[in-house]
Each structure stands twice: as structure tokens, then as C-alpha cells.
Design a protein around this nucleic acid. Sequence first.
DNA 1: GAACAACCTCAAGTACCCTTGAAGTCAACC
DNA 2: GGTTGACTTCAAGGGTACTTGAGGTTGTTC
Lengths: 143, 143
Amino acid sequence: MADETTLTIGQLARRTGAAPSALRYYEEIGLLAPTVRVSGQRRYGPGAVGVVGTVLFLADVGFTLAEIGQLMEARSTSPRTWRDLARRKLAELDERIAEAQAARVAVEHAIACPHDDIITCPNFQDVVRRRLDGELLQEIRSP
Amino acid sequence: MADETTLTIGQLARRTGAAPSALRYYEEIGLLAPTVRVSGQRRYGPGAVGVVGTVLFLADVGFTLAEIGQLMEARSTSPRTWRDLARRKLAELDERIAEAQAARVAVEHAIACPHDDIITCPNFQDVVRRRLDGELLQEIRSP
DNA sequence: GAACAACCTCAAGTACCCTTGAAGTCAACC
DNA sequence: GGTTGACTTCAAGGGTACTTGAGGTTGTTC
């Protein structure tokens, strides 16, 4: 029977919902610190669940693994950096929400439109034109 | 001087904001119909701007290129399919919005938390625990 | 002592959406 | 007739986050 306070990679995987291969990958890219080995096999302390959970949560929130790496590093050493990164992501989330809501409205309009071929629908053409104009504006702003 | 009602790939690219390589790629995967060629070069009618604009808009909205392919095919032949696909994406957008809003709240809480190492913060631990429990529920729901 | 599950490493593959580079063609201009 | 710019094809590369497969070891169980 195994130690009860220590987890194998499979057990950690089950408790966190991350695949063992993903956990190995996280270790490989430096997101998770290398662990104690028992005859070659990784053993995790109970705290690992929280760490992996944090990683997964941050990934859900939209941080890339590289960003999560920075966050985990700044975690205890520099709460200021941590909060800066978090605030930046907050702005990104707001943007994403706004975009999704705009998209939602546009799709709703397209569905409500009585035309059979949407490309012929004036409403839709309007949406598309705005999309194209947005692109052009971006190009003009940063040439 | 060239025909005024017809566009080269570069001109179409400038009018739509899509790179020429992207337009060729769209054609390659069947998203854009192959066009007339003038001594080997693609020539697009004015309607192409709308078509490409539609593709770009749909991509923004979150459709994959494969889905956009289906949509373009169903466009005039089957408005019902079109609306079905659109409605499904609407639900997806709602989900995405809800997720982003939940993430926003969680990040806000994390920022507001007075703890220096967030992993030790009870609020944050709670967020992470909910994330893990959510995962487990999913696993139970679809084993 | 053989099977079995779960672990290990390392290289390569996957999915999506393109971009980049090499090598060449074509029309227009000087 | 040589350069320029925009076009052509085709194969390969790139970023992100993993997964998969081959080939091998360890520990437990029958």
C-alpha cells in the first residue's frame, strides 16, 4: 500500500481533471516544479492539487501557459507583478466580452433577417461593411 | 490599364484586410470558389469583397473555417441549415460570454484579495476548488 | 513466474490558420 | 532587353497546448 499523503501522477490527474501527459508537459515547460521521484516515478504532495488547480483556472481565464508561468513565478515574490498581469487580463476579458456580445447581436440579426441568401440581405451587408471598415481603420491607424 | 470592375488578389486583399496568402488558402480549402484566370492570375468580381467580408465576419464571430464552409454552402440552398448553424453558434456565444464574465469576476476577486501569495488565499482556493469540482462533475456526466 | 496496471522517456503527430521561402511567370515601363 | 512589381505554385514552417506511440521499467497480484 502506498503513502496516503502523496499522489502519483495518475491520482493527481484524477483529482484535477488534467491528463497525466498534460502534467508532464507542464513540468517540461517549467510550469510545475520537478517533484520527488520514487524509483523513477513522480510523487506529488497534497499541495499539488491546489497548484494544478490554479494553473487550470488561469488557463480557463484565458492566460497562456507562458503567462501562467510568469504568474506562478511572481506569485509569492512579487504580488505587484501578479496584480499587474491580472489587471491586464481583466482588460482583455472585458474586450472579449464586448466582442462576443457584438458578435451575438450580429448573429441574431442575421437569423432574424428574412432574406434567403444572407449575402443579399442589406442588414447583413451592413454588418460586413462595418467589419471591413474596421479593418481599414486599423490599417490606417498603424501602417 | 486594367479592367476596372475586376480585382487582382492584391486589390481584394487590400479591400478586405485579408492577406493574399489567406485568400489563396481559402480557395485551397474550398471556402472561396476558384476564379477566372487571366494569364494564370486570379481575377475577382466586385461581389468577392462581400463574400470575403462575410467569411471574415463569420470567423470573427467564432465560426471555424470548416463551419464557414458549411455556412457558405447552405447559404442560398438551405436557409434552414444556415439558421440552425447560426442558432447553435448563438448558444456557443452565450456560453463564451458567461464564461468570460465568470472569469472576470474571479480575476477581480483575486486582485482584490489581500494575500501576497494567492495560493494561500481562501477566496482564491475557493475559486480553484469550484473549478476542480466542475471538472469532476463533467467527468461524471460523460464518462 | 507470468501477467497486468501504471508509470517512464523521447520523438513525432495533431488541430487550426495561415505565413514564409524558393523558384518561376507575366505585363508594363524605360 | 533589363528591371520592377505583382502575381504563380508547392513544400515547409510556426504558434499553442497537448496527445499518441514505441519501447521499456516497476510494483503488485494470481
